[in-house]
Design a protein around this nucleic acid. Structure first.
Lengths: 346, 346
DNA sequence: CCTCGTTGCCAATACGTTTTGGCACACACC
DNA sequence: GGTGTGTGCCAAAACGTATTGGCAACGAGG
């Protein structure tokens, strides 16, 4: 009982609760608040020793600028959004790729003094009306994405991950360099003996499908190999599409599946049809994840380095918000092929 | 060209950018800022017609209180955190259960004027030092969780989802009512003929494992059925644990697996051992998700209603932050059994 | 007529920071 | 000694809201 009241103010000096504000720092350092502010923000004219003293005091008492006050003054909230586009309202977004991007972006935002809020997927972007964001990351925008239009009208800076195919020059983006990475996967299949390689993509109009398809068409054309493609709508017909691809006279001897879950479904279809992986059909999926790792056999996959994508996107967005970059900027991230049991070793 | 400059200020009145602040609302309604503020927040003494007029004006010009200013004045940031506990630093968190909780909590926070930031998993909770949070949700805390200790010291209000088994009375929580729901699953197995039911749990010291185990032990004891249990550490030995359970003389005829992914792994082991599901071994998993739905056959699972959990947790946290609830409060959420192909129909 | 309680409203202040527009001093150059 | 050019620092004014402590008007009760 007595212990409780006694505990309350213990450790005030070293505690995590910011006690005094900037004023206190200034007082302890023997300068004005103006100078303290200047020293901490690295602006204005402050003597080197004075600055050092202020910084020392701030460190000492664990000073953190009150984000609300700072936001008020700077006309900024310190809040960044991140959202994933889905063709289905409220659709599942438990993709590992997505989660890893978010985590990386959160860390990056944090280290720059921003907070990242995860905006729930919604086709029209309603949630954005009530969020006071300084800027936002949009993962895998649709083609001609209405959300981007809306954000643009609202004047919210945007960085996309993947591109809106109709407006590739309007927004800054960070993207996978599929044009070369997809080819690495195809080369791998070819080098292990595949000659009839089929492509299975999604049909939601997101850029990764298109990129993979373009790479596939160019690559097969160059080699005079047959072009066998199929599309699966989001939902359950991935297995259906895979079955049509595999259950025919001139069966492919390899499958390049853009989405991880589709690849997983395709592997199930192979089993049902009595096709062995990788002996009868080799399988490569375009994004790594838990499904690819847990499948039997494990699926050879592209590691798209989502952490790097998230980090780059957040950094680009922050630079944009802070007006350190004027127009649009782009950044490509390379992927790496993880060879596993669904393809024959080279 | 001319069009561009013209477009810039179109729709100022109905636009999303807040034009004037509270002052503007007051001016248009012909009252003071004080009265406007009172009317909008439902406090103070304001005549009914005056209040209506203020609200109308605010609606009209699309007024939103500046969150920084409000935060500054109210000594609050409007930011809530949500984080998932993991025994492994930087561990994967792409569990559907988790994502659904986060989405629901985000919507709820939004509707109360808060923003939710997804705090990356980290054993020691470092990220929390740099986040100005009004409160936080901790999903599946560990036993004696150091993060909870730290948050408690920092004075950050906490609501957990699942419980810290060593401190069940110290924090408010929302939890699955496993004590009855696990039994529903066991009843189902029994009613379909199972007599040797084994339990496979995780070993990370999170409350759901313990709850499921307690329910299992009580239930089997009551019926005089054999008690066959195994634990799998986080990582890859779920298959190993399942194999030891299944590859023995007195083989179980049913498996209750607490974690979805472990159940998936166990199904793989069955296939390797030539055991048919559900003819030779029935399988129930304790949480639904994409793995359970995509497995072959699909796994009977408990739908834990993560949306409801997320919503309740957020509401409880907000009520706590706003001092509308004083001590701790608890809430149980029921689950529902989804019968699928891995168990025999009743 | 005076007092008292109630109702409806408002002026002024506080929240903690950043930024503007200086002031004072020092040094150098004619 | 004047004039110019930096340098180091500061007082005061924002930013937009919520809240405190009123003031005036009104009707009721003495």
């Amino acid at each position: 009982m007595a212990e409780l009241t006694g505990e309350k103010d213990t450790g005030t000096a070293s505690g995590n609760k910011p006690k005094g504000g900037l004023r206190e720092v200034a007082r302890l350092a023997g300068v004005s608040v103006t100078t303290a502010s200047h020293a901490l923000n690295g602006v204005g004219r402050v003597g080197a020793d004075t600055r050092a003293r202020v910084l020392a005091v701030a460190e000492e008492i664990g000073y953190r600028a009150n984000p609300s006050a700072r936001g008020l003054r700077r006309a900024r909230t310190g809040l960044l959004g991140i959202t994933h586009r889905t063709a289905i309202e409220g659709g599942i977004t438990d993709i590992e790729y997505f989660v890893k991007i978010v985590n990386a972006a959160t860390w990056t935002a944090l280290s720059h003094g921003y907070s990242l809020v995860l905006v729930p997927p919604s086709l029209d972007g309603r949630p954005f009306d009530d969020l006071p964001l300084d800027g936002t990351i949009v993962i895998d925008p649709l083609t001609g994405d209405p959300l981007l239009t809306r954000l643009s009208q609202m004047g919210v800076p945007v960085v996309t991950t993947g591109r809106d195919l109709e407006r590739r020059d309007e927004f800054s983006w960070v993207d996978n360099e599929l044009s070369t990475c997809a080819i690495a996967a195809l080369d791998h299949l070819e080098s292990t003996g595949a000659r009839r390689i089929a492509l299975l993509t999604g049909s939601t109009g997101q850029s990764y499908d298109q990129d993979a398809k373009a790479a596939y068409l160019a690559w097969t054309k160059e080699r005079g190999l047959p072009q066998i493609t199929a599309e699966a709508a989001p939902g359950t017909d991935a297995a259906q599409a895979a079955r049509e691809l595999l259950d025919c006279a001139e069966r492919p001897d390899a499958l390049y599946v853009v989405l991880e879950k589709f690849g997983f479904a395709a592997a199930g279809v192979c089993r049902q049809l009595g096709l062995r992986i990788p002996e009868d059909v080799q399988v490569v999926v375009g994004a790594d994840g838990e499904f690819a790792r847990q499948a039997d056999p494990r699926l050879t996959a592209l590691d798209l380095h989502p952490e790097e994508i998230g980090r780059e996107a957040a950094e680009l967005l922050i630079r944009t918000v802070e007006k350190k970059v004027v127009g649009v900027e782009r950044r490509l991230v390379a992927a790496r092929l993880l060879e596993r049991g669904s393809t024959r070793g080279a």
